[in-house]
Simulated scan of single mutants.
Amino acid sequence: MNNFCIITNIDKDNEYKTTKLIQEYLVSKGKRCQIAAECSTVGTNEDETDVSWIADDTDCVIVLGGDGTIIRAATDLCTKEIPLLGINLGTLGFLAEIERQDIIPALDSLLEEDIQIQKRMMLQGKITRDDQTLYEDYALNDIVIGRSGFSRIISISVYVNNILVDTYHGDGIIIATPTGSTGYNLSAGGPVVSPSSNVIMITPICPHTMSQRSILVSSDDEIKVVVDKSKKTQKEEAIATFDGRMGMELKTGDKIFIQKADKVTKLIKINQKSFYEILRSKLR
């Protein structure tokens, strides 16, 4: 690997001390290394990273922050499919497996290419209204359809391959990848699955019943979520988010089509800890 770039969460490294340390170390080894803040144009949407400047011959993107920073970078860079190395400056850090004190040994392993590259499944979602597409995007963790504003309960019908699975009354629904199983899905009582699993999770959020639980479907299945009417006085029934971003208000009859994406996120793994060791360590 010769060409690198760094994307930094400035809230985690606001003076770029760790970022500059990494850049200087890589340059001292004869490598090219650019920092996103120095090269990109700041846009009006702070939730998006301007990746237009990142060259296609970039061998690795080093992401400094927490899992949220990596998830954002993965979505923004999904069309480039450049491997990502996460360095944890946050809290849990399931995706950002390298801790601050292990940066230099990790960089040495990276330069020696003593690494593994894991391919993580992504979701592709499309929101339609009256058969017109309103929005399309990718998600590494999850696509969530939740209640909007102060609405109390929303009604959502979920179909798998055009067959009705159930109609959920509650705070919403989470459609999660195996990578996203340790995120909102876990907090909502959904199962934790290995990142290499070929499944998609459907997890209700605070369902207004005792019997509804998470459902695992094949990654080859297509999921359709339909927003049903729940309150006569309510125009916007729900809101859709992709990896916690892009909140789009939904109305009765809106449909969200979700399936396995044709893109993957490539994560660089350096340490030898298994997913289950990390799980045990992070969640105690």
Rank of each mutant, 00 (worst) to 15 (best):
N3P: 06
F4S: 08
T8D: 03
E15C: 12
E15A: 13
E15T: 14
K17S: 11
T19A: 09
K20N: 15
Q23V: 04
Y25E: 02
K31Q: 13
C33H: 10
Q34C: 12
I35Y: 00
A37N: 12
T41Q: 14
E46C: 07
W53F: 11
D57K: 12
T58P: 04
V61M: 08
I62Y: 05
I62G: 06
P83F: 10
L84Y: 07
L85R: 12
L89V: 11
G90F: 08
G90L: 08
L92H: 09
G93M: 09
L95R: 06
A96D: 07
I98L: 09
E99Y: 11
R100H: 14
I103L: 11
I104D: 06
P105F: 11
A106K: 10
L107E: 07
L110E: 07
L111K: 13
I115E: 02
I117W: 09
I117H: 08
R120K: 14
M121N: 08
Q124E: 14
K126E: 14
K126P: 01
D130W: 03
Y138A: 01
N141Y: 04
D142V: 06
I145N: 03
G149Q: 10
G149L: 05
S151I: 14
I153M: 15
S155T: 15
I156D: 02
I156E: 00
I156F: 05
Y159S: 02
Y159T: 06
D166C: 14
D166G: 03
G170A: 04
I173E: 00
I174M: 01
I175S: 00
A176R: 07
T182P: 11
N185C: 15
L186Q: 01
L186H: 06
L186W: 01
S187V: 08
V192P: 07
P195K: 07
P195T: 09
S196H: 12
S196F: 12
M201L: 15
I205T: 06
H208E: 04
S211A: 12
L216N: 08
V217P: 00
S218F: 01
S219C: 10
S219P: 03
E222S: 12
I223R: 05
D228P: 05
K229Q: 14
K229V: 09
S230C: 13
S230E: 14
S230Q: 11
K232A: 13
K235S: 11
E236W: 03
A238Q: 00
A238V: 02
I239Y: 02
A240L: 11
D243G: 04
K251W: 02
T252A: 08
T252G: 03
K255N: 02
I256N: 02
I258S: 00
Q259A: 10
A261I: 04
A261F: 02
K263G: 04
K263W: 03
K266C: 09
L267G: 06
I270W: 04
I270H: 00
N271G: 00
K273A: 09
S274K: 12
Y276C: 05
K282P: 07
L283S: 05
R284M: 13
R284G: 13
